[in-house]
Nucleic acid binder design. Structure first.
Lengths: 189, 189
DNA sequence: CACAACTGTTGTCCTATGTCAACGTTTTTA
DNA sequence: TAAAAACGTTGACATAGGACAACAGTTGTG
């Protein structure tokens, strides 16, 4: 049950067997269907999710009802509505499984206990933040000043899984272009 | 010389006087003219800068020679080309003063020494990362699905200093719209 | 399994915004 | 301080890509 999580943790820092077991014991296991909402717009994020199997999407909805996807977490990745998880304000976004999934989740209080107890775990958290920051940066740069065509080529190069695994509609809402435009561009690749 | 920096540090965590002095002693002071380049495109970031006075801009240049601004740091803020500072690859961006400025900078190795020596300082670093991440998120959401008008209103609401303090051209390159469009929108506000 | 709901594709049309140019103003530099 | 360079504003024009609709294919549900 915890093998992927252990791999993930060991890949980022060195843990002895006992710490690893103790850390994992704070994660609870759930199976979900497709399109299940894990965190809703007005919720405050109280869990951190590890994707054991499947795929989880982070997205929001504009005032006009338009969906905007921000992040897709595949197997072996952690995901939550981080700003809300950090400062405990409403998420203003949704966390949703987009495939039948298996998840391991840890509560916020346990998460911070682990951060404080294990320096290696704190290091992983720092790395998550650093990486999250870097990815967000790249996305800002990557999209600014790109036309629709360039955005699609950018995502194929930088996140090749995305177009293969995610619906056109969701991919379009991630790229900030309309599904029609994405469809047209893909047909000409 | 260090008073603003001390205020900044004390505002984020509690330091005793001695620690504070010791931390500050690792920061060196420089005065710069307007439009001085602190970090260039192919550089690896080796310093973290605290803006004592003035304003510093982080930007990049696309293959077509177009400038894209990503971040403006005013008095009392830390700034560097963080991805490069973290992983020691070339920045692929520029750090530039856009006003006559006074800066305090700490070297990367000293910075990490301080992070390791003072848990409070480590906490500040974590907060910087968290905040950076949150701001980047907001920007992604804030800009996606917005037209030029909405972007301008967004920035007026969320970063009121920007349009007042920064040239039209730079503000436009931050918003991802053309200077002409920004000019037209401002004239109709 | 059949019906409903959703998704992807493609055509037509329209608009927001980019590009370019002109010109006055501000800033830089020598 | 005078000349040169950069900037802001505004008009005319061109176009990328959004909106909408139609339809076929796919997926979900009672």
């Amino acid at each position: 049950m915890y093998s992927t999580l252990k791999l993930f943790l060991n890949g980022k820092a060195e843990f002895d067997q006992e710490s690893l077991e103790h850390i994992c014991s704070h994660f609870r296991y759930i199976k979900t269907k497709r399109n299940e909402i894990l965190i809703s717009y007005h919720d405050v994020a109280t869990n951190y999710y590890f994707v054991n199997k499947g795929c989880v999407r982070l997205f929001t909805i504009t005032n006009e009802g338009q969906e905007i996807s921000r992040y897709f977490a595949y197997e072996g990745n952690l995901v939550t509505a981080l700003p809300s998880f950090i400062n405990q304000l409403p998420t203003e976004e949704f966390l949703q499984t987009i495939e039948k999934s298996e998840l391991l989740y840890v509560s916020r209080s346990d998460f911070y206990k682990l951060v404080n107890k294990y320096p290696e775990f704190a290091k992983i958290y720092t790395e998550i933040l650093e990486l999250g920051f870097i990815v967000a940066q790249k996305r800002i740069y990557g999209f600014q000043g790109f036309n629709a065509n360039e955005k699609v080529r950018w995502v194929i190069k930088n996140q090749p899984q995305l177009l293969l695994r995610v619906s056109n509609k969701m991919a379009a809402s991630y790229l900030g272009i309309s599904p029609s435009t994405l469809s047209r561009i893909k047909s000409k690749l």
